[in-house]
Structures are given as C-alpha cells and as structure tokens.
Amino acid sequence: MAISFVSQAGTSETTSDTSYTLTKPASIQADDLLIGVLALYPGDSGSQVTVNVPSGWTLVRTTYRSGSNPHQVTVMKKTATGSEPSTWSGSLGSSETIKMSLVAAYRGADAAADQFVAEGGGTGAQDGFSMSTATVNNTDSSAWRVTVAGATSADAGLGGASFTSNETSQRRNTSQESGVLRLNLALWDSNGAVSTGNTSRTIDRTWSWTAAANWIGLIKPANTAPPSSGSIAVEAPGPTAAASGTVTVQGALAATAPAPAAVVSGYHEIPADGSIAATAPVPVSDITAGVPVTGSMAVSLMPTVAIAAETRVFGDHVLVIDPESRTVVVIND
C-alpha cells in the first residue's frame, strides 16, 4: 500500500498549566500513523521542558532552542486503533503558558516499531529568518518526507507573519499570540515518494523569530507482501522401479507321499501300507519382477515315488496239488 495523507487537526492553549491536548484528525482508520507535534514557549521555566506523552503515544524527539524567548518542538507518534478518543491529554514538567499542537494522519506506513526510515531535529539562528532541517538519508524509494517547524517571536499584533517552505504540500500553518509573544507551528509533506539519498528542507518566515526549531522525518511504507504461511501439498506420481534377482528358498522341504498300491502277480504278500517320508532337494527359481519379492513362499510338491519290490510269500504256507487244474497252489495259514 502506498503512503497517503489522511487529515490533520490542531489546537492552541494560552493557560499557564502543566497539561496539553492533542486533537484527533477526521477519517482515521486502524493502523494509520499519527504524528503529533507540540510547540511551546518554555520561557516560564527558562530551560527545556520535560514532555510526557499521552497514553498510547511514543516520544520521537524534542528539539530546544535557547534565547531571550526560547522555543521547543516535541514530536511523538501513535498507531491508530479501531477506536480512538476525540482528544488525548499529556503533561509537562512545569507550567507553561503558550502551547500549540497538531496531529497529522498518514495511511500506508510500516509497523509501529519501524515507521520512520530516518528522522532528525534542527534549530534556527537567534533572530533569524531562515533555517534548514537536519539532513537525513533516505534508503527507501517509496518513503514520504514530513517537515515540521515552530518558532517564538515578539511580534504579536504586528501582522500575520507565517512560515513558508520549499516542501511540496503544506498541511497546517497557524500561529497563536499571548501578550507580546507569538508562536508559529506548521507541517508540510512531500505528497509522494522522495528519491533515495540525503535530503533536507528549508523553512523561512516573513519576520524574524527570536528562537526556532524544526523536525524532519521519512515515513517508511508498509510491506505490501504478506508473510508466508500455511503449507503446500504436492501429489507426486508413484516411482517405477525394475528389479531382477534370484529368490532362493532356504532349508529342506518335507513332503508326505500317499501309500503306493502294488499289483502283484504270481506269488503274493501283504500289501504295503502307511506313508513314505521323502526329503526333496531345495528348489531354486529365477524370478524377474517389477518389485522386490518379500515375505515367505509356500511350495506344494507332489512327488512321484517309484518303488521296486520283490513279491515274496508272507507267513506259513502249504503246497497242495489241484487235481483238476493239475497246478500247485500256495495256501497261506
């Protein structure tokens, strides 16, 4: 997402107290970058004033310029949520009279911890008309530049002295008077991406100031590529492998042959019965297949057993002569 300007809002206070207010800009959304600026005249304390940012805000930088009428600019930031109050309240380390604030909203900035590519503060010479910001190095070609300026002067009632800048777009440029003093506060931006490399801006004022301070920041764009997550399912075809080898059955094979039947001619004997145990040699087979053979293999054998036997008369016998056939007959007891 490219960076874009959303809106701005501001307020001025002339009450001597230790508080200040930031006003919410219109049309902000969750994740918008809010840049808050507080400009004040710290003459009541005579030195730099401690600024305590409102709850949920983060201090970016405070720049102080001493002088007969000193000036101080404090920059803070916040990532907008889905629900924000209409104002935010902060506190100061001492009571101050003249205070001005503004909040500018930008969309498309990076995460809260990394919203600026670079930033810096600067000051103008006492009783000067012109000043330059700090020089910052831009390393992101999609970054936007934001410039802020604030000043204290003793020309209240003498006309509308205001800031000008060589920055592209002015978003807010206001002043506040109190007694003889005038405070000026302005914000500009590049209204688009700026080139990489060193960059700075110049701020001028119609009449001289007694003290002035400024700030420059480079807004880093959000990373538009979402982080990788989840998983990727890939269906790969099944591998094809050709395998060849020899399957050898180890050990002896036991087979039981049925009792052989014998036809006896001539002299007879009792037929053999029971079983014959025979040990067959281990068969070896060559197998060629697409996949390896695993597990066990059952082999059924039907051995044929050749039996050679001699018929013998079994038990006691008697020889008698058959008178009719005139043959000798063997009779078993």
Score class of each variant (00 low, 15 high):
18 T>Y: 04
20 Y>F: 14
20 Y>D: 05
21 T>M: 08
24 K>D: 03
27 S>C: 06
28 I>L: 04
32 D>N: 12
32 D>M: 06
33 L>I: 10
33 L>C: 09
34 L>N: 06
36 G>S: 09
37 V>Y: 02
41 Y>L: 12
43 G>R: 05
44 D>P: 00
45 S>M: 13
48 Q>F: 04
51 V>F: 11
53 V>K: 05
53 V>E: 13
56 G>M: 13
57 W>V: 11
58 T>P: 08
58 T>A: 14
66 S>N: 13
68 S>F: 03
70 P>I: 10
72 Q>K: 05
72 Q>P: 01
74 T>C: 06
77 K>S: 12
77 K>Q: 12
78 K>L: 14
78 K>G: 00
81 T>L: 14
86 S>W: 01
86 S>C: 00
87 T>M: 07
87 T>D: 08
88 W>R: 03
90 G>F: 05
95 S>W: 06
101 S>T: 10
102 L>H: 02
102 L>S: 15
102 L>R: 05
103 V>E: 07
105 A>G: 11
105 A>Y: 03
106 Y>E: 04
107 R>P: 03
112 A>T: 13
114 D>A: 15
116 F>M: 10
116 F>T: 00
117 V>Q: 05
118 A>L: 03
121 G>C: 09
126 Q>S: 14
126 Q>H: 08
131 M>T: 10
132 S>L: 08
134 A>K: 01
136 V>A: 07
142 S>T: 06
144 W>S: 00
147 T>A: 11
151 A>R: 05
152 T>W: 00
152 T>L: 12
154 A>F: 08
154 A>Y: 03
157 G>L: 12
157 G>K: 10
158 L>K: 15
159 G>P: 07
161 A>L: 11
164 T>I: 08
165 S>P: 00
